[in-house]
């Protein structure tokens, strides 16, 4: 598992190079081909060990995470920021950020509670400003530039059964792919691993990677929202932590190809791997953009359930991660079924 390293790297949509470099460096001796396309997607190939490959199988996971961009440096030296991808502004007050390539520290200030006229004012990106410890525009410009990216500055933590960190969505998927690459796969077909960019701002990188790979089938690996908390009735939970990988039958804009969906479920059943169905259809994944590329690529979605995604403190259950990994290995073992 590479989540402890992957989680702390800064890689907001459009600026994934550090994540890409880490993955590249780690897997380069374990794959048969490794290259970066024009958009910055990293594509790895494990070749079939048999004489004639029976098709192309592809995994997709996105390297990017949600974050922020500096849009304005104000006269008082404070920064205006805009979210990149979906980050709820209410998460920001009192948080620490790392800004730009140098990782300049900053904090998101909020008027002290004693001084607030109305405690019900909702924090918004219009009202929140980032304080980097200077009080002049010219001073701030020495430290940061308009267009710099920012992330939450939080550590990764590991407990006996749980993990806490930022960017599990979708470094969890990246880590799964890296683990698969490290496995000694003996397969009758070629397996591609696409570490893609720009998922969080509209599923942008994956289609271009699919154009490159032209797979016969694609499995998108995600880290998905749980919702299993006391404020939500059970029937509204999307997934439940501890119940194993979540298999998607439909999400925004795409009903998962029936054959692929049933094959994933059947494989889990056959191999006795714990799984759950994702029980909400909101949100989209790269399966949408991949399936709509070229002549149409049947794509499935398998996700690690995770609480509080898009926040600085996502919570993941380790067993879910390994159950997901086992399901993916089983899918590769049963790959010929779907490729034929």
């Amino acid at each position: 598992m590479f989540l402890s390293e992957l989680s702390t790297i800064a890689g907001v949509s459009g600026n994934e190079s550090k994540v890409r470099d880490f993955i590249k460096k780690t897997i380069e001796n374990k794959v048969d081909e490794l290259y970066e396309d024009k958009m910055g997607n990293l594509i790895a190939l494990k070749k079939s060990k048999t004489q004639s490959s029976k098709g192309r199988f592809a995994f997709f996971a996105h390297m990017d995470e949600v974050g922020f961009m500096v849009t304005r440096i104000n006269e008082d030296g404070k920064l205006s920021i805009h979210p990149v991808g979906g980050v709820d502004a209410r998460l920001l007050p009192g948080k620490r950020l790392k800004i730009g390539e140098k990782g300049t520290p900053g904090v998101v200030g909020l008027k002290a509670i004693h001084l607030q006229d109305n405690l019900d004012n909702v924090p918004s990106y219009q009202s929140l400003k980032v304080d980097i410890g200077v009080n002049k525009k010219s001073e701030a410009e020495k430290l940061v530039s308009v267009g710099d990216y920012a992330i939450f500055d939080v550590p990764f933590e590991e407990y006996s059964k749980h993990l806490i960190g930022k960017a599990f969505d979708d470094r969890g998927g990246c880590s799964l792919m890296m683990d698969l690459i490290f496995e000694d796969l003996k397969l009758p077909f070629d397996v591609y691993f696409a570490f893609v960019v720009q998922e969080e701002i509209g599923l942008r990188g994956s289609g271009v990677a699919a154009e490159e790979i032209k797979p016969d089938i694609a499995i998108v690996l995600e880290t998905t929202t749980a919702g299993d908390n006391p404020e939500l009735e059970e029937y509204k939970w999307a997934t439940h932590i501890g119940d194993g990988p979540a298999i998607t039958f439909m999400h925004r804009g795409y009903v998962v190809n029936k054959k692929v969906y049933e094959w994933i479920v059947d494989t889990a059943e056959k191999k006795g791997i714990k799984y759950q169905l994702k029980r909400r259809t909101a949100g989209g994944t790269d399966a949408l953009s991949v399936s709509k590329r070229l002549f149409g690529i049947p794509a499935g979605v398998v996700s690690i359930p995770c609480r509080y995604i898009h926040s600085p403190s996502s919570v993941m259950y380790k067993d879910d991660y390994f159950d997901t990994l086992n399901l993916l290995k089983a899918l590769l073992e049963e790959g010929e079924v779907i490729l034929s």
Binding site: M250, R252, G253, Y254, V255, L288, S291, K292, R293, L294, F295, G296
Partner: peptide, 12 residues
């Protein structure tokens, strides 16, 4: 749910 089939049907 989003013109999925038609996006690819004409490709070949």
């Amino acid at each position: 749910i989003g013109l999925v089939g038609a996006t690819v049907a004409g490709y070949d």
